[in-house]
Simulated scan of single mutants.
Amino acid sequence: MNDVLIGSFISAMSTGLGAVPILFMRKMSHKLRDILLAYAAGIMTSASVYNLIPEALGHSNLLVLTLGLLLGSIVLLVMEMYIPHTDIDNSHFQIEAKAFLIIAAITLHNLPEGLSVGVSYASDTQNLGNLIAFSIGLQNAPEGFLVALFLVHQNIGRFKALGIATLTGAVEIVTSLLGYYLSTWVTGLVPYGLAFAAGAMMFIVYKELIPESHGDGNQRAATFSFIMGLLTMIALTEWF
């Protein structure tokens, strides 16, 4: 129980930690942003393919893995369809409405990530929860910075922007505990949960992180950053 609390807290608060530089700087270059997003994509891909999917298969079979992966992807797809997902660089909305949409969208998109962390801690595999919490936390950090940067550009105070960005990630603690308790109480739910987490993470990688990291002409740098993210997670898996 203590492990899931600590892991989910660190993962969630990475959003706020990533937003801290907003207190000292005004903007991030497109190239650095793309490199960070691609690195997070590599981390999450490796966590899904080399940790979550083999673990789900080890606890069940191909049918369970397929159902879980598809369910995780479909849930994220439905969220994409019905939750406003406004580009941070888009300026067609009123400032107040746009700020609300960004905050709501980021907060709701963090819910499945928290579930991923909780379900991973419910698994019998040692350190799987820590690895998934680490991968989600790395993805949250640049996201927190971008949200805070956007809010500052909408004339919201820097400390207030930092606080709001932190809160968008804090919801992961709640859903992490929910995923953990559901997986420990319901027999046979763990492999479905692991596969669900993998599907949700891969949807985020392919739908969000990779396209965003390749949209500003920095494809080569982003590609090598993605590979470094893969290698980082593989190395952590081998070491721990």
Rank of each mutant, 00 (worst) to 15 (best):
N2I: 14
I6V: 14
I6Y: 06
S8C: 09
M13C: 06
M13T: 10
T15W: 01
A19P: 01
V20P: 04
V20Y: 01
L23W: 12
L23T: 11
S29D: 15
H30N: 14
R33Y: 13
D34G: 13
A38G: 05
A38C: 06
Y39I: 13
Y39W: 09
G42M: 12
I43P: 03
A47I: 02
A47R: 03
A47H: 06
L52Q: 13
A56M: 07
H59C: 06
H59V: 06
H59A: 12
L63H: 11
V64G: 07
V64T: 15
L65A: 12
S73N: 11
V75Q: 10
V75M: 09
L77T: 05
M79A: 09
E80G: 15
E80S: 14
P84E: 08
I88R: 15
D89N: 14
N90S: 14
S91F: 08
S91R: 15
H92P: 03
E96Q: 14
A99G: 05
F100Q: 10
L101M: 12
A105N: 09
I106Y: 08
T107E: 01
T107Y: 07
N110F: 09
N110K: 00
N110Y: 04
L111S: 04
G114Y: 02
L115A: 07
S116M: 07
S116R: 04
S116T: 13
S116P: 06
V117G: 03
V117L: 00
V119F: 03
S123R: 00
S123D: 05
D124M: 01
D124G: 01
Q126I: 04
L128N: 01
I132K: 02
I132P: 04
F134W: 15
F134I: 02
S135M: 06
L138N: 01
L138D: 03
L138I: 14
P142C: 14
F145W: 08
V147I: 15
V147F: 09
A148I: 15
L149N: 15
L149A: 13
H153C: 01
Q154G: 01
G157I: 11
R158G: 05
K160G: 04
L162A: 11
I164N: 04
A165R: 05
T166P: 08
G169A: 12
V171G: 11
S176Q: 07
G179N: 06
Y181W: 13
Y181I: 15
L182H: 10
S183L: 09
T184K: 03
W185T: 14
W185S: 05
V186N: 05
L189C: 03
P191K: 04
G193N: 03
G193S: 09
A195W: 02
F196T: 15
G199C: 06
A200I: 08
A200M: 08
M201W: 04
F203G: 05
I204K: 14
I204M: 15
V205S: 09
Y206N: 15
Y206Q: 13
L209A: 13
L209H: 10
P211R: 11
P211L: 10
E212A: 15
S213L: 12
S213D: 06
G215M: 10
Q219D: 11
Q219W: 01
R220L: 13
F224P: 03
S225P: 08
S225Y: 01
F226D: 04
F226V: 08
L231Q: 09
L231T: 07
I234M: 03
A235G: 03
T237L: 08
E238G: 00
E238N: 06
W239R: 13
W239C: 12
